[in-house]
Design a protein around this nucleic acid. Structure first.
Lengths: 190, 190
DNA sequence: ACCTGAACACCGTTCAAGT
DNA sequence: ACCTGAACACCGTTCAAGT
């Protein structure tokens, strides 16, 4: 039967997860799906558009947390950020893909909406909440990006030279600093 | 006379500044310099290596601030970050290039060293200073990246749809939040 | 030492034409 | 509606051979 847009997205997620963005070409995708390149352009209008859908798909793995009380909101924020990190950290170049999606079609990234909501519940003033979210998201994607560049560079070297431990600490440290800077109680370590 | 590595880097900075990373190809560079593509590979071993030098060159515009006293260190940090932002904001895709350089050859980025130094002077504990720098640099590059993606997307639309004002506020807000989270006095607005 | 010419193995996108 | 075939205008990198 005919190729579907879903299959296209799934195949793209597969290549990205296994080989990274450099290998995620329209031609490779076509080969994998046993069609000619041109066929892909009947289902998506461009590679960029496809990548936005890939980004959204990656975040499907992150479930919406239950809406917290004001007192618990900082904890929920920290937990949500950790889940986002978990969902993306193992997918090469996911930070780059997310950044693209965020600027092209931010409304397709549900968890970012939740984040804003929780910040407001936590008591961050309306006007500041969007700024605050930016700071958190920059930290999230920045941490992931540097992890992934490090992994990419040490690909040839001995495996696991990249200290995941250090990076998790750095990530959590940053989240704590930012939440504290927002004058929210810094959440207890879980 | 013969082509030099310096000329190569300068030409690359020129193309990047005017047209962005998508147009910065080795072939385009060769055309601009009136040589064959292969010639470039006598001066640099790869495009990546060239980009690292481009990143370093972009930061040459940022002068080293005088070493601050502990009390003034937070102010110096904020000022340094603003200067870094100024140096990079108008150069398309500079955030991406910086990120690459940071993971490939961090020691070639002097200002990042100063930042660490100032954080220590400000009283951030030895062990935390590197984490703290990461948070600040993620914020810096993240802010620049989203600005530039926004600019790129609105390239076809009416010019200056991108609110630079909002973004500067968002940037400064983030710096304040982070410094405050580090338990440093947040610097007065200059 | 420095560069040319030419090749190798790729890209994203478009589009007439087929079924 | 969905896809093929083929083209257009590109990539980064390598390397024998030239000067």
């Amino acid at each position: 039967m005919a190729l579907t847009r879903e299959q296209l997205i799934d195949a793209a997620v597969g290549i990205l997860s296994e080989f990274g963005l450099a290998d995620l070409s329209m031609r490779r995708l076509a080969r994998e799906l046993d069609v000619q390149v041109g066929a892909l352009y009947w289902h998506v209008k461009s590679k960029q558009e496809l990548l936005v859908d890939v980004a959204a798909k990656l975040l499907d793995a992150v479930p919406r947390p239950t809406t917290p009380t004001p007192a618990l909101a900082p904890l929920s924020i920290a937990a949500l950020l950790r889940r986002l990190r978990s969902a993306l950290i193992a997918v090469p170049d996911s930070a780059e893909v997310m950044q693209l999606a965020q600027s092209m079609r931010p409304e397709s990234l549900d968890p970012m909406g939740w984040l804003l909501e929780f910040l407001q519940i936590a008591g961050v003033p309306q006007g500041d909440a969007t700024y605050a979210r930016h700071v958190l998201v920059n930290h999230l994607l920045g941490s992931i990006a540097s992890h992934q560049e490090a992994v990419a560079l040490s690909a040839g070297a001995e495996p696991d030279t990249v200290s995941t431990e250090w990076e998790e600490s750095a990530f959590d440290y940053g989240v704590r600093v930012i939440l504290q800077g927002l004058a929210l109680e810094h959440p207890a370590v879980v």
